[in-house]
Design a binder for these strands. Sequence first.
DNA 1: ACCGCGCGTGCCGTTCAATGAAATTCCGGC
DNA 2: GCCGGAATTTCATTGAACGGCACGCGCGGT
Lengths: 296, 296
Amino acid sequence: MTNASGASPAPRGRRPAHGEPVIDRAFALLTAFTATRRSMTLAELSRASGTPPSTALRLARRLLQLGALERGADGRYVIGLRLWELASLAPRGHGLREVALPYMEDLYEATHQHVLLAVRDGAEALLVERLSARDAVNVLYRVGGRLPLHSTGVGLVLLAHAEAQFQDRILARPLVHEPEGVPVSPAALRRTLAEVRRTGLAVVERSEPGPVVAVAAPVHGGDDSVVAALSVVVPAGGAEPRGLSPAVRATARALSRSLGSPRSAAPPAPARDPFPRPRRMWPMARHRGTFAGIAR
Amino acid sequence: MTNASGASPAPRGRRPAHGEPVIDRAFALLTAFTATRRSMTLAELSRASGTPPSTALRLARRLLQLGALERGADGRYVIGLRLWELASLAPRGHGLREVALPYMEDLYEATHQHVLLAVRDGAEALLVERLSARDAVNVLYRVGGRLPLHSTGVGLVLLAHAEAQFQDRILARPLVHEPEGVPVSPAALRRTLAEVRRTGLAVVERSEPGPVVAVAAPVHGGDDSVVAALSVVVPAGGAEPRGLSPAVRATARALSRSLGSPRSAAPPAPARDPFPRPRRMWPMARHRGTFAGIAR
DNA sequence: ACCGCGCGTGCCGTTCAATGAAATTCCGGC
DNA sequence: GCCGGAATTTCATTGAACGGCACGCGCGGT
């Protein structure tokens, strides 16, 4: 025994592989990156992901090799191009955007302000695409970022058409209008959601960083469920208050048709379906579907 | 011994964990998806990734839990939205696009055909963004897809400004013009690359799916290296042959400036740098940098 | 000059998470 | 009712993953 102090000699590799599976660890490294933290040193990465430096290095190296991470010119780690390439195959992300972009551009021509496209993921909306004029009013949200369901146009549309059970879970929370901080009454929100369903539109005004009005409409997918929300955002008080409604509604419907929605049975344009063909119906058994959990 | 036949009793778990690390396996599952194969059943996933069904299931489940994979309405596996969200933080992917989009739109206004933005990854170019008129001529490439370096406008620009060693490796290969199948002589390509460097532009005509002309220019980054290529694609024989050159060049330069390029020392616009600030120079020791290998 | 700190990295003994063949269940078609 | 393929569970085995420790380096303070 070389160790002088009689206590435990502290053997080399102590606590090996005791907990989380490797993939979770690797993912923890990746998710340590955020919009405000797009590059990190190894030490930052280690701390932010709760991984010991030694392990973080090993994982980071492997991710580097796979192209999931890259190193900037300054040596800091960043999300890799290869991961972006891969992710561009996500049907609900880039896939949806691909189909929607021409329609969004049509809408953009009309308003020359903002056009948004969002899908629901967990208890939030995820901004899939945004077209914005350079001189447009401020928007709070970036593509790839998350929006609250209860205080945005697209969010309300997505929430209004979600399963009742999910809505209840959201309504059970204490909700606050996002930028302003005004509390939302569940009853009022319920009424709003009913109105959104009835009219097929959500109209939201916000004042905080600047007075704007958003008009949003649901986008239906192949099985007629609501898969996304389309919205324009214009400065409040402009000449066109909600004269935009027909345009937004029409564009959302056109996009829905192009996604294979059985609604609006018109026999029109070619409308080749852009998504992989369904083959047989899925049991939906004990596997939690994409939309099932609230957990982010 | 309950086993009647005297031979080896074929114990349960035979060949355990003998080879590839887990992360590589998981990544193999993800990279099994392609543009023409955006959704797969478990069996397909297993076959395409070379992973035994049992293992594929275990990994797929974990990836599902993490949101890297999702299941479509038909139960087939697809790339998940969460992965897309993560990947939207890739500086060379979506990050670059974010900065470039307004400039691309300016260029789009002028031509109303196609505007492309690509970066180099390994021995190919990766299309980061594409703006296209609905009635524009055919383009072969989709956003998130790869283009050959030696027979596209953006590719030539990226190749021309790559390290000499890398160029040599590319030139050593037998090269063929992409859609047409015409072989490229290394000498001619070298001459072309020199011309691209001299003029700061690449002009490429192709006839195959339709006669078009591409005019591409380099985009410089913070350290003045070429980080991307910007290009317009218009039908050949149109009124504007290469009258587009000044516009493309000017737009590329404006974008470069906005990326912090020290070139064109104008003291102009605010030009807040959109990328994380470098802190100290990086040794570049034995770690292969992002651009080092040709391997994809 | 000296010291201390933190970061990136290599080392290595320990051990549990990962593994995949086989068995089982589930479905759809015939 | 029976067959074939897919999805899923089981389980004995073991090497891939783990993380504490130590080293070297660059930087800032004194």
